[in-house]
Write a protein that binds this DNA or RNA. Structure first.
Lengths: 224, 224
DNA sequence: CTGATTGTCAAGTGTTCGCTTGAATAGTAT
DNA sequence: ATACTATTCAAGCGAACACTTGACAATCAG
């Protein structure tokens, strides 16, 4: 009659989902996957782990129901199992930042000082896009993530290529750079660099996953 | 320069919050605390752990920033550090139930069969309360949780006392029982029992924490 | 077929976790 | 002060975790 053993098993089930995110590297993996599917090798490079170890972490995430897979040739692509996972991951970030001062401090350390770069919310950007404002939306994420889905009309220049491709950007127009989200260091670094070169640049406060989570449209997202 | 070490530390920080909930007993503790503060001893009894062990779990939750304490005499009362924690806990439950069939099955096993008891949403109940409908709202949680905050006008009869106090309930009126939430077995059991005795009874689909999280008012909540 | 590439599995190792037991601390009552 | 209570701390032990290494499986090119 609603016995103790069942209750324990139930809460152990909940705990197992939390446990999947109880490792920093797995949290990183989920964060990367918020921006689109990835092969094991690609994820391993992103989180600086060995292939075997990355594969093991992915099995754990898969068993917890957080990610799903697809095979294409010799590659196995991992993706988040549902948009709910993004939501959950965002909730976790939020609570960590509000309830732990040390985490909030690390966030600031990680992103660097962006005091002089103006921020734009996704709602503001969406308004300006709809009103055909002449601005350049710049996606500084790796090409793969841009291909998996980007803000309509956005230009792709991965941060690694920015120095050598900077001439593609017009000095006359307003530039809005974005990347993976509030915790991604790509756009902050890009805007600092562009600003130092005299470009008119702002930064989108959120990233592509937040844009999608808010129900705004993405371009270039192809379901195979 | 947004280096690797800082990023790892940051994500380890996120992971540490998830780790706090990566144990079934700690998840149970958070669930109980959603209904109000508790002493260590009281929590230990609730989750069937030794006092020392419960205290250790509570230290972990505290270090993760999820709970806070207050001392009163020799007692130490633990409470959730912020309403965000309830939100996070609810998100975790949601994802576990949708992405894991085994968890959803355990939920059904745990709550028992309630096919013939009608459910009411908190919005529906709130409407009926405002329109002064003649219904009895029955809180079957332990007295302590009722005292910490209950739906306005609710009657407190803890499930353990229901058999001997059943005569306090009128057979003529509609009864709506509630407890801690969708995962609490108290109200389902109470409604089954009342129904078998011929009472007109429905069950609130949500519980007191959900009611509060939705911004609806509670009675009897006293901040000391 | 062979060989190359991507990913998974299995075994081993040091570390952390979850629990128990018993001692220590903080506050209250006598 | 002493006794008592609620809680925390410290030590210890078996289990689980995170990583490495090397073997195995799956797919494709030739």
């Amino acid at each position: 009659m609603s016995n103790r053993a069942t209750k324990e098993a139930l809460f152990d089930g909940f705990a197992q989902v939390a446990k999947a995110l109880s490792n920093g590297r797995r949290a990183e993996i989920v964060d990367v996957l918020s921006n689109g599917e990835r092969s094991v090798e690609s994820l391993a490079a992103e989180v600086h782990l060995s292939i075997a170890n990355t594969s093991q972490h992915l099995q754990i995430l898969k068993n917890a129901g957080l990610v799903a897979t697809r095979r294409h040739g010799t590659f196995v692509y991992y993706r988040l199992a549902s948009p709910d996972v993004v939501e959950f991951w965002r909730a976790l970030q939020g609570i960590a930042r509000t309830s732990r001062a040390d985490v909030e401090r690390l966030v600031r350390d990680y992103l660097g000082d962006n005091g002089d770069v103006e921020e734009l919310t996704k709602e503001e950007l969406w308004q300006r896009l709809k009103s055909k404002d002449k601005l350049v939306v710049l996606d500084v994420r790796p090409r793969q993530e841009y291909d998996a889905g980007h803000i309509p009309g956005a230009v792709s220049i991965p941060l690694d290529d920015l120095k050598k491709r900077i001439k593609e950007l017009p000095k006359s127009k307003q530039i809005v750079a974005y990347c993976r989200g509030p915790l991604c260091a790509l756009a902050p670094e890009a805007t600092r660099y562009l600003k130092s070169k005299g470009y008119r640049v702002k930064r989108l406060a959120e990233g592509a996953p937040d844009w999608a989570a808010a129900g705004l449209p993405l371009d270039g997202h192809v379901e195979e």
